[in-house]
Design a protein around this nucleic acid. Structure first.
Length: 649
RNA sequence: GCCCCUGUGGCUCAAUUGGUAGAGCGACCGCCUUGUAAGCGGUAGGUUGCAGGUUCAAGUCCUGCCGGGGGCACCA
């Protein structure tokens, strides 16, 4: 009997093909001219190779460059191509894994000698040769024993280890191009020639085998790949643009802060940076006051015994700075504010009627972070948290969580962040407290998210040692994610540190303690802000909101008067009466990202006016009476919540 | 902490195969009195991150430490 199967092409025809026919065969039948445009196929919605044998009733959708999945395959192919090139140039190298990542791919290799930048060039050149040689990429379905034999014979121990960790019931597949064979679930293009030439190897880095720091370190080569040179160049250009908005660079050109070797991971804030810091605190103080918070401040250096009671000494010791004093006591510099806050809560007897109590603290904490983790303002060893602890009854917990999340998202909106990712982190391996308590708290947080109808991702085992948490993540210029806000629920610390309230039943109870931060770290938030705005901060945040510049020295007295007028209305105005041409001054303050220029010359002196313009390129300048200009700018500089911008010039 | 790269005046960068440090900007001093992104001239400023080593000779090569960058791991 003829064993043919019937398949349907999406937006195409229905075909009868012999049993064993492939998607490629169908494509040839369908429209031979499309062969060059089609790279892969979706069979019943699943992306696969064009060489996939078809079953009866299959629905086929051919994928071209226009499909997102195709670009992923291209990058995966490029990773294999790189591994093939590496093996051909450096046969002693062992291969491991090579996945697709955002904008590209990487492949981890084991080799005694490090890959140098010159090696990367050689590898890249070899990759281009392999593309030109256009090897067929063959798909081989094999059983476990055969696969094990292949990689044992090839002396590829990492591949064998991966093989062993794949569940028994899963099928295995190999791909071969030339003499290079890889264990891979695919899919791939039909030949190496289809990869084209728009790829670039970017950097070498160390990476632990299987992400485990107790295992050996492999060499990871990162690359990027695109369908054409234009897309590749565009990507490289985007990287250059992103690097320009690096907050460390902004810190320099805007004169905000610096670091130096004697205090690794600790910020030296300059006047302008500290002004910005102060604006953030002023803003939050207003918001917190409106939301019914108290504000406290607790000691930075506290005796070891308190940290033992709180559990930090047992679980957080390696991250703590300690100090010995001549009386033989051991103190720790606080890595967290919570134990101190509980001490304030414990003063006096609390009634359930006093709850919830919302206690905020702009607490500066120190954590001994691994040296390799330090990164500008984003990851430091000393930072200021906009911390708060809310003590409430179990019944109040969900409402309080909702109020925090609501406030957090509203605050982020005020700063121009609309797209906020939320992660839910549950119990970690190392933790304190009973499993029942953990379950209750995790349910509480999830309940709040559900009520607020918010999407989130689940971070398994990433909670704090004392309780589960919600994390609010913002993204920096280079696409890295940073956790800023957080809400954590905790019933352990109140118990450990003896925090009580007297309930309606007349008995003592431990309150639920919510730990929350909106910015998380003011340092980090400032870093993100700088990158988000490429230094061009909204007026209310700009450390210097405007600068009064003179044309000639005969306007000096008037300029001082003008500057004072702005300052008296709370506008952070600088004065530039240097003996320089106006073009020189304009350029300098443009580079420093000052939002407004106020120019005064002979004419303005005479008329009692000022020439104002925004520093944005091509902005119109406007000549207007001084009082009018002051009122307008003061109005525009107000904080988003309606609170006037602070006066501190 | 681990891997790779890297460290030159305040900043950005030069210095042929190892031959004993240069420029621009900035600063300072003058001149210019200026109308919206760099006016002109002059002066000062560096034991080339630190400590060793190799060499007749080290900014250039080697080792260690410290910092920085890119990753990994860890995390706000």
């Amino acid at each position: 009997m003829s064993s043919s199967v019937e398949v349907q092409v999406v937006r195409g025809g229905c075909h009868h093909v012999p049993y064993g026919a492939t998607a490629l065969d169908v494509l040839t039948l369908e429209d031979e001219k499309r062969l060059a445009d089609v790279y892969a196929v979706k069979v019943n919605g699943v992306v696969d190779d064009l060489s996939v044998p078809l079953r009866a009733g299959a629905s086929l959708e051919f994928l071209t460059r226009a499909d997102e999945e195709t670009l992923e395959i291209l990058r995966h192919d490029t990773a294999h191509l790189m591994a093939q090139a590496v093996k051909s140039l450096y046969p002693e190298t062992k291969v491991s894994i090579g996945p697709v990542i955002r904008d590209g791919f990487y492949y981890d290799f084991a080799r005694d000698k490090p890959f140098t930048p010159e090696d990367l060039e050689r590898i890249e050149a070899r990759m281009h040769e392999l593309v030109a040689e256009d090897y067929a990429i063959e798909r081989l379905e094999v059983d476990r024993d055969e696969a094990r034999r292949v990689f044992t014979d090839a002396d590829e121990p990492y591949k064998v280890e991966i093989l062993e960790s794949i569940p028994e019931d899963e099928s295995l597949r190999l791909y071969r191009q030339g003499d290079f064979i890889d264990l891979c679930r695919g899919p791939h293009f039909q030949s190496t020639g289809r990869v084209g030439g728009a790829f670039k190897l970017m950097k070498v880095a160390g990476a632990y085998w299987r992400g485990d720091s107790s295992r050996e370190m492999l060499q990871r080569i990162y690359g990027t790949a695109w369908f054409d040179g234009k897309a590749l160049r565009g990507y490289l250009e985007r990287l250059r643009e992103a690097a320009k908005r690096d907050h460390r660079e902004m810190g320099k050109v805007m004169d905000l802060f610096h670091f130096q070797p004697e205090a690794p991971g600790a910020v030296f804030w300059h006047d302008k940076g500290w002004t910005l810091f102060g604006v953030l605190i002023d803003y939050l103080r207003q918001r917190q006051k409106q939301a019914g918070y108290e504000e406290i401040s607790t000691p930075e250096v506290i005796d070891r015994s308190l940290w033992e009671s709180s559990g930090h000494w047992q679980t957080f010791r390696e991250h703590m700075f300690t100090t010995d004093t001549e009386d033989g006591r051991v103190f720790a510099v606080k890595p967290m504010n919570c134990p101190g806050c509980v001490q304030v809560f414990r003063q006096g007897t609390m009634s359930y009627r006093d709850l919830p109590r919302r206690m905020a603290e702009f607490g500066k904490v120190h954590r001994y972070e691994p040296s390799g983790a330090l990164y500008g303002l984003m990851r430091v060893r000393a930072f200021t948290q906009d911390d708060a602890h809310i003590y409430c009854t179990p019944e109040q917990m969900e409402d309080e969580c909702c109020a925090i999340v609501d406030m957090l998202l509203s605050v982020y909106r005020d700063f121009g962040f609309e797209d906020v990712r939320i992660k839910f982190a549950d119990r970690p391996q190392v933790r304190i407290g009973s499993d029942e308590a953990w379950t209750r708290l995790e349910q509480g947080l999830l309940g709040a998210l559900k009520r607020m109808k918010l999407d989130y991702t689940h971070n398994v085992g990433e909670g704090a040692f004392y309780g589960p948490k919600l994390e609010f993540v913002l993204r920096d210029a280079l696409g890295r994610d940073w956790q800023c806000g957080t809400v954590q629920v905790d019933v352990n610390l109140p118990a450990r540190l003896g925090a009580f309230y007297v309930g309606a039943d007349g008995d003592k109870h431990h309150p639920v303690m919510l730990h929350r931060a909106l910015f998380g770290s003011l340092e980090r938030f400032i870093g993100i802000l700088l990158e988000h705005y490429a230094g061009v901060l909204p007026l209310w945040l700009a450390p210097v909101q405007g600068v009064v510049m003179t044309i000639t020295e005969e306007a000096n007295d008037y300029a001082e008067k003008v500057c004072a007028a702005f300052r008296s209305k709370g506008v952070r105005m600088a004065l530039d009466i240097r003996n320089e041409k106006i073009g020189y001054k304009v350029r300098e303050h443009s580079v420093a990202k000052v939002p407004y220029f106020v120019v005064v010359g002979a004419e303005e002196c005479r008329e009692g006016t000022v020439a104002v313009r925004s520093s944005k390129k091509g902005a119109e300048q406007q000549s207007r009476p001084l009082a009018e200009a002051v009122a307008a700018l003061a109005q525009e500089a107000r904080m988003p919540s309606g609170v006037p911008s602070q006066e501190n010039v």
